[in-house]
Each structure stands twice: as structure tokens, then as C-alpha cells.
């Protein structure tokens, strides 16, 4: 078949043709001018590419390029150290769950107080059972609105630290 034969010519050129097929391809190449031309074209292209690989100069300076790599290495090592600390995996997997539970709890308590007909102006008490989360609330009786924000305390600390670090940089 022509297609297979063409691929065999290429495999012959690349030295990837099984030994038992080499003679067969050589015989056809000797007999067919078209196949010889194809082999010549494939050979020229291969040699031209191998001898003239395009260059792509890096424009960043040595120091700048290295500083970016160094920063990434340091960041990954810091993350790895944090991950190896005891309790990290517990916090990682259970923090969202605890946050969600705290959120639901705060909403239930808050809405219950808010809807209380006996004392619509009584202060709402939000009890946060999680050491991982913190919350903030806003209440507007005139708008009939009560909002509770619950967020990760660790993330808040981390973002404050990184903001502080970037100020020092």
C-alpha cells in the first residue's frame, strides 16, 4: 500500500525500519524514481533542520531570571514546611466544614433573634464555636436586613502578613 510504503521510506531514513523490511524498501527505492525523490526530500528536510535549529535568545538578565526561580523555590519550600506541620491536614480538610457549620449556626441564631416579635430591637448575639473562623454582622431593622460574614481567621492573618511583607520589600 502506498501510504504504508511512504511511512516505511521514512522509517528507513530514520533507522527505525525492522531489519526484515529493509531489503524490501531498498528494492522498491532502486526501482521507483518517485520513491527516490521522496527519500531525497525527507533527507534534505531532516538534515536542514538538524543543522539549523532556530535560536531563541532569552532577554531577561541572569540576576532577574534567577531571582524569579529563587522566589518560587522559597515559596514552595515554605508551603511544604507549612504542610508538614502537625494538624495542617486536619485544618485543611475540616476548616471549610467548620466554617460552614458556624455560618449556618450564626444565621439560625441571628434570624431567630431578628424575627423575634417580643423584642425586635434586642442585640443579636452571635456565638462562634470555631477557633478557625471569625465573623462580623450587620443589622438594619428599617431594611429588614441581617447579614453575617464568616471568614477564615488563618487566611485573614496570612493576607495581613503578606501585605506587611510586601510593604517591607
Amino acid at each position: 500500500m502506498k501510504t504504508d510504503f511512504e511511512l516505511n521510506v521514512q522509517a528507513y531514513l530514520d533507522g527505525e525500519l525492522p531489519e526484515n523490511e529493509v531489503k524490501e524498501v531498498q528494492a522498491v527505492l532502486a526501482a521507483r524514481l518517485g520513491s527516490q525523490e521522496l527519500l531525497r526530500e525527507l533527507t534534505q528536510t531532516r538534515d536542514l533542520l538538524r543543522q539549523n535549529e532556530p535560536q531563541a535568545p532569552l532577554t531577561d538578565s541572569r540576576d532577574f531570571y534567577w531571582s524569579q526561580i529563587r522566589r518560587r523555590i522559597d515559596a514552595e519550600e515554605k508551603a511544604k514546611t507549612a504542610a508538614s506541620q502537625p494538624g495542617w491536614s486536619f485544618r485543611r480538610f475540616f476548616a471549610p466544614l467548620i466554617t460552614g457549620a458556624a455560618c449556618v449556626f450564626a444565621l439560625v441564631v441571628g434570624i431567630g433573634k431578628f424575627n423575634s416579635p417580643a423584642n425586635s430591637w434586642s442585640p443579636v448575639v452571635i456565638e462562634n464555636m470555631s477557633s478557625e473562623t471569625t465573623s462580623m454582622s450587620f443589622r438594619s431593622p428599617s431594611e429588614n436586613l441581617f447579614v453575617v460574614w464568616v471568614y477564615d481567621r488563618n487566611e485573614e492573618l496570612a493576607s495581613a502578613q503578606s501585605a506587611e511583607e510586601s510593604l517591607h520589600d
Binding site: 521522496l38 534534505q44 528536510t45 536542514l48 533542520l49 539549523n52 535560536q55
Partner: peptide
């Protein structure tokens, strides 16, 4: 399969850097 076989000789009279640029454009 339908492409005619060609005789490529783009290196003729070309600087190596120019040839590399051509190969890059073709790639």
C-alpha cells in the same frame, strides 16, 4: 500525500541566521 515532492535548497546563498529564521517561521 498529494503534495508534490520538492527540492528544497533554501540554504543557497543564505546566512545561517537567516536560514534559522526561515525555519522558525515555517515551524
Amino acid at each position: 500525500r498529494q503534495m508534490p515532492v520538492v527540492n528544497i535548497n533554501p540554504s543557497e546563498g543564505l546566512e545561517r541566521s537567516e536560514l534559522r529564521k526561515r525555519i522558525d517561521r515555517a515551524l
